[in-house]
């Protein structure tokens, strides 16, 4: 029997990915799930006895606060990324020629350096005797250094800076596909710019808005090192909470339970995203786009 080389290649590459995901995503996740139903052990990390207590504990007001803080911060980050990213993506989609490639390159360049290192760079810029304060003093706008670092604003700025490309790229992809004739038609029919924006551009670029928001919101939930470095570790976020359970409190089952809840919340968001795309493409089919 002869095997089609293309066929076997397909199986090989798909198999490799399945193997990879199975070994490094599914197996650890199952271990986490198991651990979340076990009891804390004093000398070993877990005691093999079933309990639901880890999940009950999450409803303690402290942990609800932790979840709320993390969601709030992630939501703020997403909002600012959208406000900054949308006009930029629009510009990117509308410029032509070599500038377009240059601008795209600017979006991608930050990925060449680790986000942790870029966060340390922000520390150097924002600290009391840092670049920003020296510059403002040189301009004569301020007399004494002002506190920029270790504030909630610094945390949001750091998160937005790190995650902005994830917002810009999907937005760019949908805005570029935007059919300019629809806008022209709306203009001919006498729609004002604001109306065109709200009724045509926004709905048509919605898939990009949703995709970008997901790509920003989900990592922002877990990125605890940015609040630690730029905010002075003055808040407890889900990421810190999980890290603390595994390291300082040595309560692996509870840490596992919090991780599982986080995974569930993220999955829920992804399911909603999936349905929104489905609905969107159905709508398009209806209007014949």
């Amino acid at each position: 029997m002869r095997v089609n080389p293309l066929f076997s290649f397909k199986w090989f590459s798909a198999g490799l990915i399945w193997f990879w995901l199975g070994l490094f995503v599914l197996v650890p996740l199952l271990m986490l799930l198991t651990a979340s139903f076990l009891q804390r052990g004093e000398t070993e990390f877990v005691k093999f006895a079933f309990t639901l207590e880890n999940y009950q504990r999450i409803f303690n007001p402290i942990y609800l606060d932790v979840f709320w803080n993390s969601f709030y911060l992630a939501a703020m980050t997403t909002l600012f990324c959208l406000l900054l990213g949308y006009p930029f993506a629009f510009l990117l989609a509308r410029v032509t020629g070599k500038y377009k490639h240059l601008l795209l390159l600017f979006v991608i360049i930050p990925f060449w350096t680790s986000s942790l290192i870029r966060t340390y760079a922000m520390v150097i810029i924002l600290k009391t005797n840092g670049v920003m304060n020296s510059f403002l003093q040189w301009l004569g706008l301020i007399q004494e250094p002002i506190q920029l670092l270790y504030t909630p604003a610094a945390v949001v700025v750091g998160l937005v800076y790190s995650l902005l490309p994830f917002m810009v790229l999907p937005l760019y992809a949908t805005i570029e596909k935007l059919d300019i004739r629809l806008i022209e038609a709306a203009k001919d029919l006498g729609a004002r710019n604001v109306r065109i924006f709200w009724s045509i551009i926004i709905p048509l670029t919605m898939p990009g808005i949703i995709a970008g928001s997901m790509l920003v919101f989900l990592p922002a939930l877990g990125m605890f090192y940015i609040p630690d470095l730029l905010g002075g570790a003055k808040a407890l976020l889900i990421g810190n909470l999980i890290q603390n359970q595994f390291l300082s409190a040595r309560d692996w089952p509870f840490g596992a339970a919090v991780s599982i809840i986080l995974v569930l919340v993220m999955s829920l968001l992804l399911v909603l995203y999936y349905f929104s795309i489905l609905r969107n493409s159905n709508n398009r089919d209806k209007v014949g786009l």
Binding site: I62, K234, D251
Partner: peptide, 22 residues
């Protein structure tokens, strides 16, 4: 502090949450 580490952790978390609300 043995098992009491859990108590330390509990109040430390409360402190950090309070710090975040400042």
């Amino acid at each position: 502090v043995g098992d009491s580490l859990v108590l330390f952790e509990k109040y430390w978390q409360k402190l950090k949450v309070a710090a975040g609300k400042q």
